[in-house]
Simulated assay, not measured.
Amino acid sequence: MSDEAANVPAAQKSGWTSFLKSLASFSGDLSGLTAPPFILSPTSLSEFPSYWGEPKDLFASIADGKTPEDRQLRVTKWFLSTLSGQFTRREKETGSEKKPLNPFLGEQFLGSWDNGELVLTVEQVSHHPPITAYHLENKKRGIVFEGNCAQKTSFSARMISVKQVGHGILRVKLGDGSTESYLVTLPKLKIEGLWTGKPYVELTETSYIQGSHGLTSTIKYSGAGWVTGTSHSHTTTITTGPGGPTLYTITGTWTGESRFVKPSKEGREGTVFLDAGEEGMREPISVKPVKQQGEYESRRAWKAVADGIRSGDYNAASVAKGALENAERQRRKDEQAAGQQFQLRLFDLRQNDPEYAHLAALLKFKPEEEDSWILKAQ
């Protein structure tokens, strides 16, 4: 074994080498490829929408915007503040990025902040392809963020490329009783550092925030290259619409500080727009104790797997993971034999969502899919 995998536990080096060889020879979507246990996260992908809610004060403050321009800035600031938690936290906590557990069909993640003022509802609405639907709502402030996300992964040039498929729509109720909405598209990412045994995430290409009032935020991501560049960098422009005049340009890192640069109105040039590393900005979600959770709730369902990963007993984690996945396969076979179809409990499918289509048209964006998942009436 070369020193390329020096960060891999000694007992896992053989499995890691086999995994890298599998990656190199694999074609198509990698979502079904089994990763060695030590690279697994004890957290299911169904928990990831909680990152949208962690900067809860920035989310709530969107309602304080007095003008469309002000609210566009606030939505953009909130969105940028969520990225560090989503894509660098596990690297900081464990020394490398970990592969989340793949949610099973119907898996749920439920939680809240501030004693239920901000509530998150998540359900795995599809397994093939894997799609996670989420609904984040602050009823007191009249703000909802609802959407769905899936991942398409591939391997090339010694890294894993991940295309996040899906979208979110943020709605804020205004003082006059009307509702303003924002289409949020998702960045692509790449996972590098595989050959050193310390995977990490870098965001790539471009994502957008399109307001129903016409303003557009365009976020271009870049990272450290062989010679120049800074990790986790972005340049964000807020324009009067796609290709329209620029109102604001903001540059920096989505893990640290971002500042206004030219052009900038109201004397903001050089001032801090966001410090994503500010202490106390993000607050973890509160969930019920595992013993009080329902059978479909994520932390209860994956408890034995998560316990094995956290304790370093990867054999126990692998056995528990296999048992859960085999039980799910059997449920699907039993449903098929009985002529039944799995019934979702929390979300309904809205095909050809007109709100999404309208916002995508404002963005001049040709959508790959126009379906949305909507929380069932409670």
Rank of each mutant, 00 (worst) to 15 (best):
E54V: 12
K77D: 08
F87W: 11
D64N: 07
Q72P: 03
T76H: 02
F59V: 07
T67E: 02
S46D: 12
G85I: 07
S44H: 10
Q86L: 14
W78I: 03
L58D: 12
S96P: 07
P49V: 00
Y51G: 15
K56S: 05
L45K: 11
L45Y: 09
E69F: 05
F48Y: 13
A63S: 13
T76E: 01
L83S: 03
W78F: 09
I62C: 07
E54I: 08
D57L: 15
T94D: 12
S50P: 10
P49R: 00
A63Q: 09
R71D: 06
T82S: 00
P49Y: 02
L73S: 09
S84I: 12
A60P: 01
R71E: 06
G95Y: 06
F48C: 11
P55V: 08
D57W: 12
W78N: 01
L73C: 06
A63P: 06
W52I: 14
R74D: 01
G85H: 03
L83G: 07
T82M: 05
W52Y: 15
F59P: 01
Y51M: 09
G65R: 10
F87A: 08
R89K: 14
W52D: 15
E93I: 00
E93R: 08
S61F: 09
S84G: 14
R90C: 12
S81Q: 02
K92G: 15
F48Q: 12
T82C: 07
P68E: 02
T88P: 05
T67P: 01
F48G: 11
D57K: 13
G95H: 07
V75Y: 08
S50V: 10
L83V: 03
L73Y: 06
S61H: 08
L73T: 04
R74T: 00
D70H: 14
E91A: 04
S44E: 13
S96I: 05
K66I: 02
P49F: 04
T88K: 10
S46R: 10
S44K: 06
Q72F: 08
T82E: 01
T82H: 01
W52Q: 15
Y51Q: 13
R90S: 15
D64A: 11
R74V: 05
P55L: 10
E93G: 05
D70L: 07
E91R: 11
E47M: 11
F87Y: 15
F87P: 11
S44M: 12
R74L: 10
S50L: 10
W78T: 05
R74G: 06
S50Q: 13
T82Y: 00
R71F: 00
A63L: 04
E91L: 12
K92P: 10
S46A: 14
W78P: 02
T76G: 03
D57I: 15
L45I: 04
D57G: 05
A60V: 05
E69P: 04
K56C: 13
T76A: 05
A63T: 10
T88G: 02
S44N: 11
T67Y: 00
L58T: 13
L80P: 04
